[in-house]
Amino acid sequence: MKIVVCVKQVPEVTNVQVDPATGTLIREGVKSILNPFCEYALDHAVRLKQAFDNISISAITMGPPQARDVLLRCLELGADEGILVTDRKFAGADTWATALTLAEAIRTAVPDFDLILVGKQAIDGDTAQVGPEIAEILGLAQITYGVEVTLSSSRKQVRVTQEVERGYEVVEAALPALVTCSKGEVVRRAPSFKDVLQARKKLIRTIRADAIAIPEGQLGLQGSFTQVVKVFPPPAKKTNTILQNLEVEKAAQEIFSFLKEKRFL
């Protein structure tokens, strides 16, 4: 059985600061990491591999050559092979062009896949669109917001506990299918020295534009339906009152007065 996990390299956005003068991101010292939701997806794949025999995991990413680093990380965490989809022709892809390229790369590299696991969204773009778009392009059933992923004993069905607004639902679909993951283990296992050494022996394949069956006009920016016309800093925050060094009674009184003044009491 073959599981494909789609992953993305992202800047660690919690640390991203905006330059107040230019309104652009300050990148110095910002690390690139494996998108946390993709790591959850990989977690689920590794868990399935531990629970069932004969499962292989392919981690695939589309990105610049340095995205190889996240594939290496996936290999350390338990993926069996990495697939790097990289070409200058892919630059500027929106979610549609990204999904089309990844879907075609999966068809090329792992044509007999059974299950695709992806993170529910990437923490840089936050669109949550690429997963469902891949599912549509490959004609697969999709289950979003998965927190637990298991297989039926026949291994013909995937069973997913998904987060919904009022709680959880358990949803089943026949394989092949695509599942987006919003959670995995909260405390994840750090790869051991042995994992790191083993990862180095695993294969990372590279797929370029000429290897996939998409006309050049449908790749990257040329193939994108949306176009960014402007990038700017978020609107300035409102002016505010910050009170410091107050006795707790005085602090409570200040909040109380504020609530009264604003007519919440």
């Binding site: 800047p11 905006v18 936050d126 339906f225 960014v228 402007k230 700017f232």
Partner: peptide, 17 residues
Amino acid sequence: RPAFGGNIMASIITPYN
């Protein structure tokens, strides 16, 4: 829409279709 966790805003159009 906001991107990069809300650190930046992007204006986007869909010009071709």
